[in-house]
């Protein structure tokens, strides 16, 4: 019989692409070819050259440095947002599953309500109230992702609770909190990990959208979204300026999605071969 094709290439391709994007971004923490915000009007809108491998923008800023720092900012915001939504969403979902009843209903309807607000709308409201900043972007995207994680956690956890080993733990006199920490969460960790990876990709996309609208980190700090927005007026003169950050966003999202898919294949026993 024909063997199912090995689908792990998606995991490794995802790892490779993600690293290819992340490593330069991480490098920008300590080193970039030029300070990303350094304006050099004499060198404006240059093409490829040894001095500026990816050219310069209308202010003469080095595009490579901006891409590195911009990716770092985007990833940082996305990570912060996902951390926020995991930190709140997973406990809430686990609580809803452990308690059930009216608390479950209340939490899940609350997350429905939150889910009904698009991240962009939340960000506009928050930015209007607090002014655009990294914190506002993290909060807006995090609030947007939170209900998804709460719901994934809850639905995975309610499938663990009726299982016999959980009942055995209850017979040992363990509290619901303790059972959640010791039995439920470890058994749904695979699903959560996959979800976190996919949410990270979504968060990067949302951050790019917010940056494009000027609702993410304020200038002069570069973000991929704002680089795209700034490139718009020069699209005819220098399409490179739009293509490069666009490519960075697309690759980051693609890499993380492949990674998430690959992880799911690897971790889900129904899809993968038995160890």
């Amino acid at each position: 019989m024909a063997e199912r094709p090995d689908r792990n290439w998606s995991l490794w391709l995802g790892v490779a692409i993600t690293l290819a994007i992340l490593l330069p971004a991480a490098l920008s923490l300590v080193w970039t070819p030029y300070p990303p915000a350094a304006i050099d009007i004499k060198a404006r809108l240059q093409g490829w050259s040894p001095a500026h491998p990816l050219g310069t923008d209308p202010f003469g800023r080095d595009v490579l440095s901006m891409l590195m720092a911009g990716t770092r900012n985007s990833f940082g915001i996305a990570l912060g947002a996902v951390a926020l939504s995991v930190g709140i969403g997973v406990p809430l979902g686990a609580l809803a599953a452990a308690r059930g009843g009216w608390l479950d209903d209340l939490l899940m309807r609350g997350s429905d309500l939150l889910f009904a607000f698009p991240a962009v709308l939340t960000a506009i409201m928050l930015a209007a109230a607090l002014g655009p900043s990294m914190g506002v972007a993290i909060l807006a995207i995090g609030l947007f992702n939170l209900p998804v994680l709460a719901r994934v956690t809850r639905s995975a956890a309610v499938r663990i609770w009726p299982r016999a080993f959980v009942q055995a733990a209850r017979l040992s006199g363990k509290s619901r909190t303790r059972i959640t920490l010791e039995h439920v969460l470890p058994n749904i960790m695979d699903q959560l990990l996959v979800q976190v990876t996919l949410q990270l990709a979504l968060a990067i996309l949302t951050e790019a959208g917010l940056g494009y609208l000027g609702l993410s980190v304020p200038p002069p700090a570069p973000t991929l979204g704002r680089m795209l927005a700034d490139a718009q007026s020069f699209l005819a003169v220098s399409p490179r300026l739009a293509i490069l950050p666009g490519l960075a966003i697309a690759l980051a999202v693609l890499g993380l999605n492949l990674l998430g898919d690959g992880l799911r294949d690897r971790l889900d026993p129904r899809l993968s071969r038995q160890p």
Binding site: A164, R170, P186, N187
Partner: peptide, 19 residues
């Protein structure tokens, strides 16, 4: 304390935490 009573479940594939 629950230890005066213990249960042995029907399905040994479900009653032991796989992790």
């Amino acid at each position: 304390p629950r230890h005066p009573v213990q249960l042995v479940f029907q399905d040994p594939f479900d009653s032991l935490d796989p992790r």
